[in-house]
């Protein structure tokens, strides 16, 4: 299969790779770039564990072709922490037991980040809506919803 060059920024860093034409962004990120924070779940768009942010919009990397992200800015959970310092969402998930097996967590956190980036003070309904494309089989969702609301509160306190 023909290889095509793709360039994008991943968590602010320039990346350039040759990918197979038609390869998914999920495959490119995990197998070419080595960002395994993006999880390969159902690969049918149903579970949300592969969710990443592309040019500010939440996308499913399993259904997005890498070539279509040429020139884009891609954000994944792998780029959220600064050294030892966790992102407020990561901290809130950790402190609120919003992670159990952890497989859905990167997708959940990216869905939550996309929400908070556009709506820093969401209502509970906004949060439920924002994570409605992400499946968690462990927590029953409530700790996740509470963690996202807690991260929003922490953000507003630090902004004050």
């Amino acid at each position: 299969m023909k290889k095509v060059p793709v360039q994008f920024t991943l968590n602010g860093e320039d990346k350039a790779e040759f990918v197979e034409s038609g390869a998914t962004l999920l495959k490119a990120l995990r197998e070419k770039i080595g960002d395994t924070s993006v999880k390969a779940g159902c690969q049918q768009g149903t579970c949300g564990s592969c969710a990443v942010i592309v040019d500010g919009e939440l996308r499913l990397s399993c259904l997005t072709l890498a070539e279509r992200c040429d020139g884009a800015a891609i954000e994944t959970t792998g780029g959220l922490a600064h050294g030892e310092v966790l992102h407020p969402l990561q901290r809130a998930f950790n402190e609120g037991f919003a992670t159990q097996c952890g497989f859905c967590t990167p997708g959940m956190i990216m869905a939550a980040k996309a929400l908070l980036d556009g709506n820093p003070q969401p209502s509970r309904e906004d949060v439920v809506e924002a994570i409605s494309g992400n499946i968690c089989r462990c927590t029953g969702y409530e700790p996740i919803i509470q963690a996202i609301l807690a991260a929003a509160r922490a953000n507003s306190l630090s902004a004050a």
């Binding site: 969710a51 939440l58 996308r59 259904l63 997005t64 494309g133």
Partner: peptide, 9 residues
């Protein structure tokens, strides 16, 4: 239609 990510696509 779908969740947030699906709607973006």
């Amino acid at each position: 239609v779908g969740g947030a990510a699906i709607r973006n696509m």
